[in-house]
């Protein structure tokens, strides 16, 4: 059954709509992406490579990898726990908790960053105590990680909750009846059921964590070679008339976007197949 047979629109209208969609995608998505790589390579491969191994760029890449690994790890663990708690048990305040999970999506990242400055900054709630004890949170990697964790918090939980709700608790109950303990139920029953959705959430979380600008910008302090992540480094290079280097570093994020997109498509096919199978 061809999809178009359902619709009554004449062929010219159909073609016009498709052309418009293709034009918009081409103009606003493909063209800028191609431009990133064109600019990055405008002075050749050698210049491209040297922009990436420049010490400040390397430091930005290292910091981004560290922050992303920490926040994705934390959020995967917390997302699992949250989804588990929400879908397998019932308790008062459950719907409120679900609302709270979405909070980072509705708060501007800049505000999120400022909240951490207000809490952990020198003038902030914990600031004096932190400084007296030699802890650096804001304007250092822990603050950048906190801000990233906040911004990317919902991704894993949001992917898992609908799926786990749909799956219900029947399989777990069966496992318990057969004598499996909690950990065994989790690793043998729950985790295999949700692994693709979990991976999907991790993927989105990862992409956002590496690309986050606003919240990180507020808590970074912009110290060169120390507290700049890849997106901040891109801005700095651009503002210093080093356009080619800026696009070279930006191309890392563009590559990440492409890899994420492909992986996402593959995962969606996987999840879709499972759904149809059920």
């Amino acid at each position: 059954m061809k999809p178009e047979s359902v619709h009554a629109e004449p062929a010219p209208v159909r073609r016009a709509v498709i052309a418009a969609a293709a034009l918009v995608v081409g103009l606003f998505i493909v063209l800028p992406l191609v431009n990133v790589f064109a600019q990055a390579l405008s002075k050749g491969w050698a210049a491209y490579a040297s922009a990436l191994v420049e010490p400040d760029a390397l430091a930005a890449i290292e910091l981004t990898l560290l922050v992303t690994a920490l926040s994705v790890g934390l959020n995967a663990a917390m997302g699992l726990v949250m989804a588990w708690a929400i879908t397998k048990f019932s308790f008062p305040g459950k719907s409120f908790l679900i609302t709270l999970i979405d909070l980072p999506f509705s708060v501007s990242p800049v505000i999120a960053g400022l909240v951490f400055v207000l809490l952990f900054g020198a003038q902030g709630f914990f600031g004096g105590w932190l400084i007296d004890n030699g802890w650096k949170i804001i304007f250092a990697w822990p603050g950048i990680t906190l801000a990233t964790v906040f911004v990317t918090f919902p991704f894993v939980a949001r992917e898992l909750i609908p799926l786990m709700q749909e799956q219900g608790t029947a399989e777990e109950e069966a496992a318990v009846t057969l004598g499996a303990d909690g950990w065994r139920v989790f690793t043998r029953v729950t985790l295999p059921n949700i692994r693709w959705a979990l991976l999907y959430g991790v993927l989105l979380c990862n992409a956002r964590a590496m690309g986050e600008f606003g919240a990180v910008s507020v808590v970074s302090g912009h110290v060169r070679g120390e507290t700049n992540t890849i997106p901040l480094q891109v801005e700095i290079l651009y503002n210093e008339y080093q356009f080619q280097a800026s696009f070279a570093v930006a191309s890392l994020l563009a590559l990440l976007a492409i890899v994420t997109l492909l992986a996402k498509a593959a995962l969606e096919a996987r999840i879709g197949a499972r759904h149809r199978g059920h």
Binding site: L65, L66, T68, V72, M210
Partner: peptide
């Protein structure tokens, strides 16, 4: 390296 992140912290 970037694509594989999620597992490595340097």
């Amino acid at each position: 390296l970037i694509a594989l992140v999620g597992s490595v912290a340097s």
